[in-house]
Each structure stands twice: as C-alpha cells, then as structure tokens.
Computed example of a mutant assay.
Amino acid sequence: MDEHSQILVPEAFLDLYRSPGRHRLLLPREQVAARHELCEDLAQAMTEHARAMLFGAGLAEDEVLQRCHAGLRSGDAGLAPGEAAWVVHRLAELLEWPQPELPESP
C-alpha cells in the first residue's frame, strides 16, 4: 500500500503487527493492509452465518461469537490468533451485538 492508497487500516488491526509499546510495524504496510482486507472480508461474510446460528440453533449472541472464534482459531482458517479475535470483534460490531470476552491466545 502506498501513500496514495485509500484503504484505511484501523489502529486496532495495526496493533496486531506492532511490538508492545512500539509504533513501527513488524511487516511491510502492504502486507498488513492485505491481511486487514482478508479479515474485514471474512467478518462481512460471516454476518449471515452468525445470524443463522442465532435464530436457527437458538444460541445466544455470545455463544455464536465464541463458536465463530473457536472455528477461526483452528489451523484451517489460516489466521493468526490476534486476527481471529479481531474478526470476531468486528463481526460483533457489524451485527451490533455486545463485544464478547474471548480467551487469551496461548
């Protein structure tokens, strides 16, 4: 991503790629922007599935989000643990559901 890019990567996502207390990114900005785009697209795509789980399976919002997080943390999802949590928090935001308490990454 160059300075002319119109993609705005939220600070919360950028923080996934910074050492604690540092401003500098651990990966090139282009790679971070690409990961953000993937995670944002995933959160957007999961909204209908999450609603279906809520109404079809009769689960509470928090349980739906917990299950989504567990699935995203599996090795098959291709996401880092921080990315999985970010996707679930973004999903909750998109659905206008309360933010879940997620387990810490190992």
Results as ranks from 00 to 15, higher is better:
Pro81Asp: 01
Gln44Phe: 11
Ala77Ile: 08
Thr47Ala: 03
Ala57Cys: 11
Phe55Trp: 14
Ser74Arg: 15
Glu48Tyr: 06
Arg67Met: 08
Asp76Tyr: 08
Ser74Gly: 14
Glu48Arg: 07
Arg73Ser: 03
Ala77Thr: 08
Ala57Leu: 15
Phe55His: 11
Arg51Phe: 09
Ala70His: 13
Ala70Thr: 14
Glu48Lys: 05
Ser74Phe: 07
Gln44Leu: 13
Leu79Arg: 02
Leu72His: 04
Leu65Ala: 09
Gln44Ala: 10
Phe55Met: 05
Ala45Trp: 13
Leu72Glu: 06
Gln44Asp: 10
Ala52Trp: 11
Ala57Gly: 04
Gly56His: 10
Ser74Lys: 13
Asp76Ser: 12
Glu48Thr: 11
Leu65Ser: 09
Val64Leu: 02
Phe55Lys: 06
Gly75Asn: 04
Gly71Phe: 08
Glu48Met: 05
Phe55Asn: 03
Phe55Cys: 03
Gly58Trp: 13
Arg51Asn: 09
Glu63Thr: 11
Gly78Phe: 07
Asp62His: 06
Val64His: 03
Ser74Asp: 11
His69Arg: 02
Ala77Met: 04
Ala80Val: 00
Leu79Thr: 01
Glu48Pro: 03
Glu61Tyr: 03
Arg51Glu: 13
Glu48Asn: 12
Glu61Phe: 04
Glu63Lys: 08
Gly71His: 12
Ala80Lys: 01
Leu65Glu: 07
Leu79Asp: 00
His69Phe: 07
Met46Glu: 11
